[in-house]
């Protein structure tokens, strides 16, 4: 057996960060600490993405998840827990139920993972510094290709049944458009939901801006 290479070291490092963060989320009794655990965990996931050759998605994970979603969560925590460090009370029953449910699930999932045999079980031997080792004839995953795929150009150029693709066959234009509309709806909906009445008897003057 050879020792771990660069990728393995990094993988284990970030796997530990990811799982440790997740454990912090579960075990901490303070919501803000849970949020910090989530940050660590998601950061580890982003780094795992980078290691797996998904650079764009990794950066996206950092930007949207860690930089956006979790900051949003932290904001929510601050707005809803004015007393610093609100403890989360969890009853013994809830823990019991959770463990009872989690144990079999873990067993099943581990079983599935162990029994998984890659069809082309050729594992990677990649140099940590050159990054992705792409086989001959295959383009690296650049954001440009991802973008093209989202605009409806198939990039894989193969159909599951082995046939050649034609225009619009396996692109992602429709989901892309759908998700854009979805985001717009969500934006308006969230703004509507979070809107708050100005406290009675308090009319912020026009030139003092709106707070909402």
């Amino acid at each position: 057996m050879t020792g771990p290479d660069g990728m393995a070291i990094l993988f284990w490092l970030f796997a530990i960060v990811t799982c440790g963060g997740a454990l912090v989320v579960v075990l901490s009794r303070h919501i803000v600490r849970a949020a910090v655990g989530l940050i660590l965990s998601l950061f580890g996931v982003a780094m795992l993405f980078l290691l797996a050759g998904a650079e764009f998605v990794g950066a996206m994970q950092l930007m949207i998840y860690v930089g956006g979603t979790v900051v949003l969560l932290a904001f929510g925590v601050m707005l809803t827990a004015r007393r610093p460090l609100l403890p989360l009370s969890t009853t013994r029953d809830q823990w019991l139920a959770a463990v009872l449910l989690a144990c079999p699930l873990t067993v099943i999932l581990v079983q599935a993972a162990l029994s998984y045999a890659p069809t082309d079980s050729v594992s990677a031997q990649v140099d940590a510094h050159s990054g992705v080792s792409t086989p001959v004839g295959m383009l690296p995953v650049t954001p440009a290709r991802l973008g093209m795929a989202l605009l409806g150009f198939s990039q894989d150029n193969h159909r599951p049944d082995g046939g050649e693709v034609s225009h619009g066959d396996s692109g992602y234009l429709l989901p892309f458009e759908l998700i854009s509309v979805h985001l717009l709806v969500v934006l308006i909906g969230a703004a509507y939901l979070a809107r708050r009445e100005v406290p009675s008897g308090m009319t912020p003057r026009d030139n003092q801006g709106q707070l909402q």
Binding site: M202, T203, P204, R205, Q208, G209, L211
Partner: peptide, 8 residues
């Protein structure tokens, strides 16, 4: 100060 912002 009634109805102004903290920065005001």
């Amino acid at each position: 100060c009634r109805g102004c912002l903290v920065a005001d």
